[in-house]
Computed example of a mutant assay.
Amino acid sequence: MKLASKILNITLAVVVLCTLVAAVGSAITKKPILLSVIRSNSMYPVWERGDMVMIDNLTKQETIFYGDIIFFKAENGSLATKGWIAHRVIGGNAKDGYLTKGDANKFSDQETDETGQIKRSWIAGKAVMMGDQPIVFKKIGYLSLWLEKYQSNPLVLPAFALILGIIIAIGELKPGQKRKKRSKGKGMELPLIYLIGGLSISIIVGGTMIASSYTLNQIYEVSQQSQGVLVGSDVGMLKIGDSVSRDLSEIKNEGIFPLIGVITTNDKQIQLSHQKFTLSKGQQINTSYIVTAQVPGRYKATIKVGLFFPLLPAAIIYFLAEKSYWLALAIVSLIPGLPLILYPFIDGKMRRKTLSVIRKKTRKLQRIF
C-alpha cells in the first residue's frame, strides 16, 4: 500500500505539472506551447481525445516536411472556428501553403473546407517524434480540458497555482502535533510536491518567454569588388565598405506585465537599433539592424530577439543573454519557482528528512553499481 501510495502521488504530481504547462502556458500565450491537449479523434489511432502531446514550437525559418503533424490555427473558413488543430502535412510548401489531413478523416481539410491551404504563419509547431511515432501521454489531458473554461482570463490559472503554493507553505509553517503526524513517514513525497510545484511555475514562465521570442538567421556575403543578390537573403552580396539597413521586427507588449527586451547577435558586422529595452503594457517599438561590410567572406548571422519578465534588472538579463539566450531564460524562469524548490532545504525538519532519504538512496545505488 505504501508503494502504491507513492506511485499515485508521483503520478498525480506529474499530471499536475503537465496540466499546468498545457493549460496555463496556452492561456497566457494564446497558442499551444511545449505540450498540447488533444480535443478530437481526427488523428486516431496516433492519439485520442484527452491525450497530451509534446510540441516542438517552430520559428518562422524552420522547415516543415511531408508527414509532419503540425499544430495550426486557420484565420478564415469554418476551420477558423475550431481553434488549434493538429493534422498531418500531405502536400504543399511554405510559399503556397500546406495540404493537411487528419489520419482518421476520409478527406483532406482542403477538400472539406473553404479555408484553402494552410499558411506558414498559421503554424505554431509540430509534434515531437520518437522514431516515426509522436510522444503522447495517454489520457492525462482531461484535467486540462476541464480547466479550459477558466482560460478566458489568463490570470486565473497562474493565480490558482500561486494560491495553492501559498496554502501548502502556510500548512507546513504551522507548528504542532498535527504537522508532526502529517509529515511522519512521508519521506520524499512532500519535498517532491514542492519540487514539482516550483518547477511547474518555472516551466510556465519559461514557456511564456520562449513563445514571445524568436531567432532570425541571415545569410549574406561580403566581396572585395562586386555586389549582388543571394537567394534566400534579404541582405545579399555586399562590397567592402557598403552598409545596408533592414527592418527586424515590430515588437509589442500585448500582455498585462511589463517586459524587458533583449536583442543580441553573433555577428560583429551587424549593428542593432536596440539592444535592451523595457516595454510597458500596450507599448510598441520598431527594431532594425545595419550590416556594414568589413571583411570578405560568406556569413550566417544569428539575431536573437528575447522578451523577459522583469524578474532581474535589465542590465543583468542583457549580460546573461549576451553569453547565451538559454542561460538568461533558465535563470529568469527559475526565480519565481525557486522559493518552492528550496523550501524543503530551508525547513529544518524537512531538510533533515530529505537529506536522510537522499543518503539512503545514494547508498543503495552504490551497492547496486
Rank of each mutant, 00 (worst) to 15 (best):
L307M: 14
E322Q: 15
Q271Y: 03
V235R: 04
K304W: 00
L230W: 04
L307D: 02
D247P: 06
M237Q: 15
I270G: 02
Y220R: 03
I251H: 01
K276C: 01
Y289S: 05
L230H: 05
S243C: 02
H274M: 08
D247I: 01
I270T: 02
Q271C: 00
G297P: 02
T292S: 12
G261P: 01
G282L: 02
I256A: 13
S233R: 09
S213M: 11
Q271V: 12
R246Q: 14
F277E: 08
V291C: 08
T292W: 01
S212R: 13
K300R: 14
D247T: 09
L259F: 06
G255W: 03
Y299P: 02
R298Y: 09
F257V: 14
A330E: 03
I285W: 07
L320E: 08
G306V: 01
I316S: 05
G232Q: 09
S245N: 13
R246S: 11
Y220I: 01
G306E: 04
N266A: 11
A301V: 06
L312N: 08
G228R: 09
I263D: 06
L320V: 06
V262A: 14
H274T: 11
V231E: 14
L320D: 09
I256G: 10
V235A: 07
I270E: 04
L329Q: 13
N266H: 07
L312R: 11
Y299F: 14
K252Y: 00
F319I: 06
G228D: 11
A211I: 00
Q227H: 04
A314S: 15
T215P: 00
V229F: 09
K323Q: 14
Q224H: 11
K268V: 10
V305H: 04
S324Y: 08
T264D: 06
L272D: 07
F309K: 14
A301P: 01
Q294H: 03
L320N: 07
L320Q: 02
I240N: 09
A301E: 05
G232V: 03
L248A: 12
Q294G: 00
I317L: 10
G282Y: 02
S245Q: 15
K281S: 12
N266V: 01
L238Y: 05
A301S: 15
F309P: 00
A315N: 13
S245L: 12
L279W: 03
P310Q: 11
E250S: 12
S273K: 09
Y299M: 05
Q218S: 14
P313C: 07
G297F: 04
S245H: 08
K281M: 12
N253V: 03
I270H: 04
G241R: 09
T264C: 10
V244Y: 11
Q284W: 02
G241Q: 06
E322S: 10
M237I: 15
S280N: 13
F319G: 12
L312E: 10
V235S: 10
P296Q: 11
I303M: 11
F308L: 08
P258Y: 10
I270M: 08
V244L: 15
